[in-house]
Design a protein around this nucleic acid. Structure first.
Length: 466
RNA sequence: GGUGCGGUAGCCAAGUGGUUAGGCACUGGAUUGCAAAUCCAUGAACACCGGUUCGAGUCCGGUCCGCACCUCCA
């Protein structure tokens, strides 16, 4: 089996074949750090996390770069409003971004370059554009990229250049650009930029948005690399412009595969800061949901489909996770002190293949999850009739852990049973032995208040975290 | 106007022309001191209209509806 991914460039699923042996190099567009990221943003980072985890599951090595956009209109505006130096202002949001990633159990990328640390690299690329005739300077000192000079412009977004209507958002006063669709490589200094300014051969100013990704990706991954990802809204103009820049600069193909995820939507509308219909991760956690439940939610739909966010779904996920945890606990109990794995029981023997077959097909997460739930169902049924041997249970546990290297939700959070809880459990056992049901129920309520349910089984009482 | 993605049971969500997707919720039963969990059983769907086919959720044509991008966007 081979891992097939949907390449936006060719609008087709293609087998992932790295340019460099078993090493996959990927660039994932990261956050603009002017505010807390909302969970729509995290949908993209979750998709990228699933991608890198599954690439590793397939036996490849991964080098992932995720940029931090720390200079643009919004970061500058925010820093001036708060009277803070730009770096100090963005640090707060960079720190919170990493905290949020950890809450969602997203694996760290290998590199997190910040745009402001790569200004000389951007300037060097822009200089080659002047040499090769792709760049020109306008009257106000800004530098633009001339899209008419790049023959392949529009190949990713499949733009019909002739049929393009100047969108409502194209400023009406772009009088000094050769073509309205030309984009800024370098923005000339304006007073609104405060002290956010760098020197360049063509005057003081700051970089345009797209040039940072070209500079940082090629610096850290090489001029040609394997995968470039982002949300579908990045296809145009951001990724289109990155291709124009990078391939014009080097004369080589830029990224081999382009992958884009769909939106997170609320009530059928894209979740975005401009619409105001967004939630930050910390808001949702404050409501009592866990990062794991949110992770399940963000993972639960295919990455190219829009995913509808609803609290009702988070509640449903909680129930589904409980089912998985119950299965996991049953396996753990069957392991006992056993360390050595035996063959998998029959009901788990096809699970890994079913899981991989679904994931190989452009990360069909629904099929992958179905493989796991099928195993849980069949396993519960079988174990109710015949207990598992310790060695078989170790094998199931190993499989569970292996699948969780991809999903990151199967292993339950570690729970310590406190002395108080253990004491209550003992007291309740005594009450039950004396058939003092009132006392027994009272203690059960007390345990529930501490966050535990107790189930009475033929082997004795068992505790479960609520 | 250009480009693209959708419409599947109460909700979410897969689906390679033919055999139960899966999850949550609901219902009945087993089990339990009562529960919880689990197991067994059970139901429910392909936006609309045509066409191709022995057979269409799936292919073709058309219609309706929703969303997105077209220089802030994941």
């Amino acid at each position: 089996m081979a891992f097939k991914i949907y390449n936006t460039m060719n609008r087709a699923k293609e087998e992932l074949v790295p340019l460099d042996g078993k090493h996959v190099r990927m660039y994932t567009c990261g956050p603009t750090v002017y505010n807390y990221a909302h969970i729509g943003n995290f949908r993209a980072y979750m998709f990228e996390d699933l991608l890198r985890r599954y690439i590793k599951f397939c036996g490849f090595e991964v080098t992932q770069v995720q940029n931090l956009t720390d200079v643009d209109d919004k970061t500058i505006r925010g820093s001036i409003e708060q009277g803070l130096p730009l770096k100090q202002y963005t640090k707060k949001y960079i720190d919170s971004f990493f905290e949020d990633l950890a809450k969602l159990n997203i694996e760290p990328a290998e590199h997190y370059p910040a745009a402001t640390d790569y200004i000389p690299d951007m300037i060097a690329i822009i200089e080659t554009f002047f040499e090769k005739g792709y760049a020109y300077q306008s009257d106000d000192g800004s530098v633009y990229y001339s899209i008419d000079k790049f023959a392949g412009y529009g190949k990713l977004a499949r733009l019909d250049r002739e049929g393009m209507q100047s969108g409502a958002r194209v400023a009406q006063d772009e009088y000094d650009k050769d073509n309205a669709a030309d984009f800024a490589l370098w923005k000339a200094y304006v007073p609104e930029d405060g002290d956010v300014v760098w020197d360049s051969p063509w005057g003081r100013g700051r970089p345009g948005w797209h040039i940072e990704c070209s500079a940082m990706s090629m610096k850290l991954l090489g001029e040609s690399f394997d995968i470039h990802t982002g949300g579908v809204d990045n296809i145009f103009p951001h990724h289109e412009d990155e291709i124009a820049q990078s391939e014009a600069a080097t004369g080589k193909p830029y990224s081999k595969y382009w992958m884009h995820c769909g939106y997170l939507v609320v009530d059928g509308r894209k979740m975005s800061k401009s619409l105001g219909n967004f939630y930050t991760l910390r808001e949702i956690l404050d409501m009592g949901y866990t990062g794991r439940e949110v992770r399940y939610e963000l993972l639960s739909g295919h990455y190219r489909q829009s995913l509808n966010f609803a609290f009702k779904s988070l509640d449903a996920n909680r129930a589904a996770l409980k089912r998985l945890d119950e299965f996991h606990a049953t396996i753990k109990e069957a392991i006992g002190a056993e360390k050595v794995a035996d063959e998998l029981p029959e009901w788990a023997s096809g699970t890994r293949a079913a899981f991989a077959a679904a994931m190989d097909d452009d990360m069909n997460i629904s099929g992958a999850m179905a493989a796991i739930f099928d195993m849980v169902h069949a396993g519960n049924k079988a174990m109710a009739a015949t207990p598992l041997t310790g060695k078989q249970a170790v094998a199931v546990s190993n499989l569970w852990k292996e699948l969780d290297t991809v999903l990151g939700i199967l292993e339950p959070p570690k729970e310590e049973i406190s002395a108080d809880v253990a004491g209550l459990l003992e007291a309740r056992a005594a009450a039950r032995a004396a058939k003092d049901w009132a006392e027994s129920d009272r203690i059960r309520d007390a345990l529930a208040a501490l966050g535990w349910t107790v189930k009475d089984t033929p082997e004795g009482p068992k505790l479960r975290k609520i």
